[in-house]
Design a protein around this nucleic acid. Structure first.
Lengths: 339, 339
DNA sequence: CTGAAAGCGCTTACAG
DNA sequence: CTGAAAGCGCTTACAG
């Protein structure tokens, strides 16, 4: 039989309330009493029963807020699916989720939205951009007792509770390592990034370049274009890159825009190895028909799921996440293990 | 506020016990009363609070049994780690786990062990071999009210609750698809399987061969050897295969024995593309130093974790798993995303 | 600084 | 066929 608070209280000859005060550091306990309770708890091997705790927590009616700059971005559909999955699990414990999505990158507008949500929520899961104004807003929330979990993209210089995302450097290294297997003889590479303003995109490129230097002396990055995460721009830019560089043998697509990139390659009648990031429906189709050789995924579903579970454990279990940063896996997806 | 049993009982003018009887199909309720309760539950959108249910379930003192033929097999260390992780989570709800591991494939001995454990457990997670005697034993347990979840390897023709493992066909197809990217010009392939008696090993090979036929006309399987999941045997057999087939360009290692295979290749001074299954510590080392090009993983940690979580949900949540078969992902692991 | 009591939502013997 | 009551383990306002 598992040890309960009642057993500790009986062993010590104090009330259960007192044991609770000690074990949850609520203060107002005589030092000797506290020491005795801690000793007995340790001796008996006490572990809190989460069911009891969760049931008691029902009275607080917790709500978790989710705010994402995700509207119109395919990638986030799977993140949202993970959030919904976790929601349906924690709903069974009486916890609610309020999801708000926004379109584009409007800093002030998002900050305003954060303030507005704060009155109704006990914790915020936030997908945003790495901007000092947002960092300040996060600190405000933290001060008013609402912890923030950053999702997918971290925010530097703020007191967020933790970050759930993926290791972008490793993502770039994985793309490069895979290209090394495909083209052991060397490669002339064009890089199609989203924007040079994105920290994540740049980290992927630098991971890729890093491994080129370490292991693949036959790899050369000949050009970097920006797709602005838009297929039309990607198409135009890729077309131009291909005519500038007839020697290209591979393209690394760092962010959105793979469809445009592939269209330009196809029209030019070139046979290039394309490695892309993030399995969206359109990227899946291109991989199935062979235009994309492989996709580096970042477990979007798990990202959403994990963020909510950490939030739940923090609120109900009163336990800070064990790690400050939670990275999901960098998956390699080809036609055969895509779905 | 979430809807509770109390609210339904008040809305219907019956006791909470009666609502419980209806909602959990315990019978002994007048049909009209039952209809009314169901109508109100649906109208109010009732969902069971798991915390309450789990707390009440504490009185049952559930124990989950785990029985595995895993001793001395590196692969299962990660499966066990997943089981331990899940254990530490559900222990917080007062559920216990008893793990028993055995060495080798002794059918009668394992059947005996199953019977012996059955007196102490409420559900069994079982890793075994696909044998009719085990199937019969599983049915016995099911009949005596102890459901069985098969882990990693399924058992045919029995009434197990569900299966947690991976899609071996897809695993073989993924290995082949990856080799297709590495060797677009074709490959002469040697296959090193564990034993031709293992259903899983055979499924991997047939998945591999399937895709050869569908997509890679330049691929030829020239030879199949058995490692008996043993490095020494693998070494000897590979050595013989290499001298029989000087034309080989690739080896697909289906089961354990990759170290032996690689040693033989190295000694022969041959430069072959090796694709292996399952990231064990020794396979990781060989991948890091480039002797293995890529590893197809089957998420061993997740397998163990998922099996326990399904068991927990079945016992405490009284909910049958939604699926009869739970497949983990087939991961592609190369040096850069190995750890 | 401490205790007694009520409550979170579900289940279960027991009485009728 | 149904209800009243106790209990699972933890937390919390209240009284002292």
């Amino acid at each position: 039989m598992a040890v309960t608070i009642r057993q500790i209280s009986e062993a010590c000859g104090v009330s259960r309330g007192t044991v609770d005060r000690v074990l949850n550091n609520r203060g107002k306990v005589r030092p000797e009493t506290e020491a005795m309770v801690r000793r007995e708890a340790a001796r008996l091997g006490y572990r809190k029963n989460l069911a009891g705790q969760a049931l008691a927590a029902r009275k607080k009616n917790y709500t978790i807020g989710v705010l994402m700059l995700s509207e119109g971005v395919e990638f986030f559909d799977e993140v949202l699916a993970g959030i919904r999955q976790a929601e349906s699990e924690i709903r069974d414990y009486g916890i609610h989720i309020e999801v708000v999505t926004m379109k584009g990158y409007h800093i002030e507008e998002q900050a305003e939205r954060m303030r507005e949500m704060s009155s109704r929520i006990h914790l915020l899961i936030l997908h945003t951009v790495n901007d000092p104004r947002i960092a300040r807003e996060i600190d405000c929330l933290e001060e008013s007792g609402i912890p923030v979990i950053t999702l997918n993209t971290d925010v530097e210089g703020c007191r967020r509770l933790c970050h759930v995302g993926c290791d972008f450097i490793k993502s770039g290294r994985t793309a490069c390592g895979l290209l090394g297997l495909i083209s052991p003889g060397g490669a002339q590479i064009g890089v199609a990034t989203g924007t040079v303003l994105s920290l994540g995109h740049n980290q992927r490129i630098s991971g890729f370049a890093q491994l080129c230097r370490e292991h693949f002396s036959g790899f050369e990055i000949k050009d970097v274009i920006e797709t602005l995460d838009d297929d039309e721009t990607a198409y135009v830019q890729t077309k131009a890159m291909l005519s500038r560089h007839p020697e290209l043998t591979a393209v690394y697509v760092v962010a959105s825009g793979a469809s445009g990139v592939c269209r330009a390659i196809k029209e030019a009648g070139r046979n290039l190895t394309v490695i892309a990031n993030d399995r969206t429906p359109s990227v899946s189709r291109l991989t199935e028909n062979g235009q994309i050789a492989a996709v580096i995924g970042q477990e979007p579903f798990q990202q959403g799921y994990k963020a909510v579970i950490l939030a739940f454990q923090y609120l109900v279990g009163e336990s800070r996440p064990e790690q400050e940063v939670w990275y999901m896996k960098n998956e390699i997806l080809i036609r055969e293990n895509l779905s």
